[in-house]
Every structure is written in C-alpha cells, then in structure tokens.
C-alpha cells in the first residue's frame, strides 16, 4: 500500500486540534485542582512518588475514573462520522448520563463534546471526520501510553500557566 502525504497531514492536523480541545476544556473546568473520586487521588500520589507532578497526576486519574472531555471528543467524532451533525447532539446526552453514573457533576464532558462537534462541523470541508477519530486515539496515546512522568509534568505546567491551580 502507498501512503500519501495529504493523509498524514490531515491526521496531524486532527491530532493537534483534538489535543488542544480536550486539554483546554479539562483544565478550565478544574480537573487538575482536586481529585473527584478516591481512585484519582491514589493515581496522583503514586505518580508523585515516581517523580512526576501531583496536579498532572490528578488530571490523568480523573481521565481514567470518569468519562471527561477526552471521551466527549471521541464520542462526538464517532457519532459525527456515523450519523451527522445530529449525532454529535446525541453523543452529548449519552456522555452526560455516563458522567452521572461515575459520580461526577458532568460539566467537562458535555462542554467538551459540544465544542468538538462544532469544531468538526466547521472543519468538515477540508478534513473528513474519520481523521479526527484517529487523531483522538493518537492524542490519548501521547498522554496515557507513552511516558507517564513527563506527561504529568507537561500537564502540571499547562495548569499552572493558565492559573487554574
């Protein structure tokens, strides 16, 4: 199979857009400030013991323990790929119910899903929604799968720079 450079460029743009969207929405609604549930506190303290930042550890623990803006971005892109603009609105309702099942007020997930739907609809002339699904998986891989200590330091730096800690 041949790889065209246009597809790689579209995938890179999708990755950057998804990363900026979910990190900014999650930081604005106060995920790095305090652990919402007891599991997030354990993950944050363990990452601090390994040499990372505790606020970035709270951020990563909150992503694991409840569907936040990262899950909202993934679900919005999946439903936009399958149904259309109405699918993004359905995804917002499903993410709200899922947030309430996991003991979370649910502000970050719904706003993340709605903003992702609007951004994908604005960019849908150039980039198909399929590339946003792949971009979201690559974006979550750079945070949760590559190198945990470095990722927690970067997230703590962003949270301190925005003044949300």
């Amino acid at each position: 199979m041949e790889v065209s450079w246009v597809e790689l460029l579209k995938l890179l743009i999708g990755t950057v857009v998804c990363w900026i969207n979910f990190v900014l929405v999650d930081t604005y609604f106060g995920l790095p400030k305090k652990p919402g549930v007891l599991g997030a506190e354990v993950i944050g303290k363990t990452l601090e013991k390994l040499g990372g930042n505790i606020n970035g550890g709270y951020f990563m623990g909150n992503i694991v323990c409840s569907p936040d803006a990262s899950a909202g971005t993934l679900m919005a892109s999946i439903f936009y790929y399958l149904i259309g603009f109405k699918g993004g609105l359905v995804a917002t309702l499903l993410i709200f119910i899922g947030n309430r099942l996991c003991n979370d007020p649910g502000y970050a997930g719904t706003f993340g899903a709605l903003s992702a739907t609007v951004i994908i609809h604005l960019l849908s002339g150039f980039i198909e929604p399929k590339y946003f699904i792949g971009g979201m998986v690559v974006a979550i891989f750079t945070i949760q799968g590559l190198y945990h200590v470095g990722a927690s330091k970067v997230l703590g730096y962003i949270g301190k720079k925005l003044g949300m800690i």
């Binding site: 917002t92 309702l93 649910g106």
Partner: peptide, 24 residues
C-alpha cells in the same frame, strides 16, 4: 460547577438538544 443540583442552563440546554436530535 462542583454541585450536583441542576440550574437553568446546564442540563436543560443539552437535554433539550439531545432529545430533539433523537426524535429527529
């Protein structure tokens, strides 16, 4: 933002749009 009670804007707007999309 860290309370479980609803207010005028937060769940109302999203629930309305989602239910209208399902009906549509």
């Amino acid at each position: 933002t860290n309370s479980f009670k609803g207010n005028l804007f937060f769940p109302t707007v999203f629930v309305t749009l989602g239910l209208m999309a399902i009906v549509d």
